[in-house]
Design a binder for these strands. Structure first.
Lengths: 234, 234
DNA sequence: ACCACAATTGATCGAATGGTCAAGTCTGTG
DNA sequence: CACAGACTTGACCATTCGATCAATTGTGGT
């Protein structure tokens, strides 16, 4: 049984905690005094270190002390900035989520379908190359049933995807795309691009290369584009 | 510091332990007496329960007691069959690996490329439908750098993949497949099919359906076949 | 220079949990 | 039936790890 949280006053550094912050900004409404520059920097370093650790060993697999060590702080000091491991995990997730969803938003009704989808695939593959930890973090989270993210996924992501699916359907009805269940198209793009981040170990073991290698990146991009665009463009 | 393992005699049930068993069969070389029928059944139930648990919460996230509970045994009794959590985890992995790789082996030089690849994709999608936990287990393991599987992956899987890649290249040089980097073809098949198992939560949240629904399964299969076969068949 | 509060630390607590031990009970075989 | 050894159990140990607390140091603003 958990002991009642007591809810004593204590440091205002702990804002984006268990529940999504009331202020979407993430900043505390009226802290008595602003956070020191060093403090801000520490927060960032912690979040970076936490992302790396959580992406590598998952929530339960990472010791809070390892994160602190990687960030160059003591465990206790880390707990000063984030009241609990769960709070830190959630903070990392939310901080990364926007960046992760952004490319999808860029699929715009004004653009040419071929160009929009091509850009999207390229952007996703670049994200897989530049932020593989973010990809792995979400993969781990979603694969385990998204215990912390299900709410956001069911609302924000769902809504965003619904909009894009509608757009793809419109393009289809206008004859600018071949008939093709839009959801599957999205899944296919996600799956193939993220595969190179999530399973980088395997990819490297089998091909000897990684997305960090520009030639391999371009080869991969071409392969994905050919397969996916080929099946949806008229 | 770990205390020296002591290595006392003790029960012979513990065979496939930390390291891959000397006997690939997995059976102890000459047990004083054979395992009881009930014992065998328990072993299986433990492995089943462990697969489900590990796939849901990962190695560090599952308590050994939860597995025991799901299998209907006491924790101590489970530890009688598997000397440690790691040993059990490894046993689950190896037991599942063969089943997981089998469809790839079925890609045969004698068969027609279209038929062989079509069968492979279908088989992988069926596996994703019928054994999503196995898919998730491997995904978790590989995403974390395959700490327990890297040896097997680097040898068995690598060798198998090399053979199939060579076959695909031969088909290409014979003009029976369009030129297409074979590794990417395999990755694409793996990524798209496994996606429906690994990210089932997300798929269900966004589409309201799962592979368990025959109509959705068939729709998915068609979509994947169209995209992948379309890009490699002449 | 002072002071309120941010930042940092080391000691410590307590629950969770992997694993051990000693003592059984059950069962197939001679 | 007797017994060796498979199977089962509950008590217990040791450690890890998240989290708390009290106390100290650093620092920005007046």
């Amino acid at each position: 049984m958990l002991s009642q949280p007591v809810n004593r006053p204590l440091p205002m550094r702990h804002f984006a905690d268990e529940l999504p912050a009331a202020q979407p900004d993430g900043e505390p409404s009226a802290p008595v005094r602003a956070m020191t520059a060093a403090g801000e920097a520490n927060r960032e370093r912690i979040l970076d270190a936490a992302l790396a650790c959580f992406a590598r060993t998952g929530l339960s697999g990472t010791r809070i002390e390892a994160i602190a060590h990687d960030a160059g702080l003591s465990k206790t000091n880390l707990l000063y900035y984030f009241r609990s491991k769960n709070a830190l995990y959630l903070a990392v997730l939310t901080r990364t989520l926007d960046m992760w969803l952004e490319p999808l938003r860029a699929i715009d009704a004004d653009r040419d379908p071929r160009e929009a989808l091509g850009h999207y695939i390229t952007a996703k593959l670049e994200a897989a190359r530049d932020h593989p930890e973010a990809s792995r973090l979400f993969a781990l989270e979603v694969m385990q049933g998204a215990p912390m993210l299900s709410a956001v996924l069911a609302t924000d992501l769902k809504e965003l995807v619904d909009r894009k699916v509608a757009l793809l359907q419109r393009w289809q009805s206008e004859g600018r795309l071949k008939p093709h269940e839009p959801h599957h198209l999205l899944f296919q793009i996600w799956a193939t691009t993220q595969h190179y981040a999530d399973f980088a170990t395997q990819v490297e073991q089998l091909t000897g290369a990684s997305l960090a290698d520009p030639a391999f990146f371009e080869q991969t991009r071409k392969a994905i584009l050919a397969s996916i665009l080929g099946s949806v463009l008229p």
